[in-house]
């Protein structure tokens, strides 16, 4: 339906604006890591995810192993599986298997958040509209950042390298403030990550992230199991 597609597009605009600046930072980061602006743009178009792309670029820059790339993407992006499971419960009957195969590409944190907030069942057109607009913001921001990163004054492009990390802080700090268990897991993960950076330096960056995150989350799950009513955010 055209109406639903347009409604999805409208709901995608704030997401796209947010993506534009964050992906601009990603473009700069990727070029600084030695990738071409074209490669950076292809990564954004084919992955549509922030943290996974940033970690992926680190692995490419370090010429890491392919298995490392697979495990890092699995660990960082496994949250999308949960979101996909959650969204799969509220799909319209028009959501046939081909539509599911296509729309699943666009499940990001923000698209998930907006889709979950809808009262009515999700239609393919609605999701496609939203994904299209968000995609445009993410990919054009990357291309601009990757290209302009070379033109901008060094002071400015250096400062923009922190954009993605700033967004990550904005994702983890508010829930850590509200929930002491999340805070404990966040601090544990950061502590182990610091240990890998300065003490156990033989472990490569990607694996260090996996081990830090898995260990902290397993400890959290053992010590503070979530209650049944607590839904994945």
């Amino acid at each position: 339906m055209q109406n639903r597609f347009l409604r999805g597009m409208a709901h995608g605009i704030p997401i796209a604006l947010g993506y534009l600046s964050v992906s601009f930072g990603f473009g700069i980061m990727a070029v600084r890591a030695g990738l071409s602006p074209f490669a950076a743009t292809v990564i954004s178009a084919s992955n549509l995810t922030s943290a996974g792309q940033a970690a992926g670029v680190d692995i490419i820059a370090a010429s890491g192993a392919i298995i490392e790339m697979i495990l890092v993407q699995l660990t960082i992006n496994i949250r999308y599986s949960l979101m996909a499971i959650s969204l799969s419960q509220k799909l319209d009957s028009g959501f046939t298997t081909p539509h599911r195969l296509a729309a699943s590409y666009g499940i990001t944190d923000e698209i998930f958040a907006v889709c979950s907030a809808q009262a009515e069942p999700l239609t393919p057109s609605y999701m496609y509209g939203m994904i299209l607009v968000a995609f445009a913001g993410w990919v054009s921001g990357t291309a601009l950042g990757a290209a302009a990163g070379q033109l901008l004054p060094v002071a400015l492009s250096s400062a923009l390298g922190i954009v993605l990390y700033g967004m990550f802080l904005a994702i983890i700090i508010p829930p850590s403030r509200k929930n002491k268990n999340v805070l404990a897991v966040v601090i544990t993960a950061a502590g182990i990550s610091i240990l890998f950076r300065y003490v156990i330096t033989a472990v490569s960056g990607g694996f260090a992230v996996i081990i830090s995150a898995a260990a902290a989350s397993a400890l959290g799950a053992l010590l503070f199991p979530v209650k049944d009513e607590e839904e994945v955010s």
Binding site: S193, A214, A216, A221
Partner: peptide, 13 residues
């Protein structure tokens, strides 16, 4: 799975 996104972002940051 509930904790993993926060732990990953923290370790990455």
């Amino acid at each position: 799975l509930y904790y993993i996104p926060y732990a990953v972002l923290s370790a990455m940051t």
